[in-house]
Amino acid sequence: MARTLTILQAINEALDQEMARDSSVIVMGEDVVGGSGAEGEMDAWGGPLGVTKGLYGKYGDRMLDTPITESAFIGAAVGAAASGLRPVAELMFSDFVGVCFDQIYNQAAKFRYMFGGRAETPVVVRTMYGAGLRAAAQHSQSPYSIFTHVPGLKCVMPVTPYDAKGLLIQAIRDNDPVIFFEHKGLYETEGEVPEQSYSIPFGEANVVREGNDVSIISLGLMVHRSLEAAETLAGEGIQCEVVDLRTTSPLDEDTVLESAENTGRVVVVDEAPPRCSIATDISALIAQHAFDALEAPISLVTAPHTPVPFAGVLEDQYMPDATRIAAAVRSVAGYAP
């Protein structure tokens, strides 16, 4: 039976159901249980935004509050995963990865390979990303391309409650390290979610709108803005196909190429800065494998190559919005050599 949940509730339900199903699943991070110096459920914050609220009462010491020491607890989670548990660690802001990158990049991502397939590291790092919340340059970035670059890591960024639950369950059951990106601006997004447990395989992009004129390849919050632009453009007679990548590693190359080959006109929308990004990666993929189908140059709609501004008016300019996406689509749709 499906009900309407927010992404925040869907993530909570996925954690709850997997912790109930598998006693090796543990949760650790800053304030995932309590906060403000009080003990446990008496003052259960459930993470800075309440994503893990209510789980302490059910799972007790499988919910671990940690000090503000990412280097320690991400390392502990990786070690616990390598030795039999399935930890879900909460790295509050993905911007903080700098202090625990060795644990992720040079340890967790390498174990399976370096031990000849005899070691597994089933750790999930849940982490917030994205701009728009006036949280300034150190709490607003979208660094998913840094993780996508690393062989051995899987990168997931759900944009609907249905996907959030199914992809997180898959992440927890997966035997490799998974970085699970949660956009701060999407937690309250609502949608239908089945009560039962289910898992969505990685590497399966979602065509969220069908159209034959222009492909918009997108991820994260940008999928919603792309849909908004597509709606406007439909009124002008331009039918967009909007592809939500869902996971950047593994990447569903087939769906991207199929769409590009169908329309011959492609706009890639990415909230992150433009260099060495998912946008450039997708663009290279299409240029390499679907060149003959292209009717126009590939257009990239991204943030500029700057830190995320703190001033609200600048931050709004920084993030790609439906207006900019629509303008790019019009230009690609009208391109003639």
């Binding site: 249905y162 089945p194 447990s197 289910y198 898992s199």
Partner: peptide, 8 residues
């Protein structure tokens, strides 16, 4: 169909 198939 996929949504059904994905259920545990």
């Amino acid at each position: 169909v996929l949504q059904y198939k994905r259920l545990d």
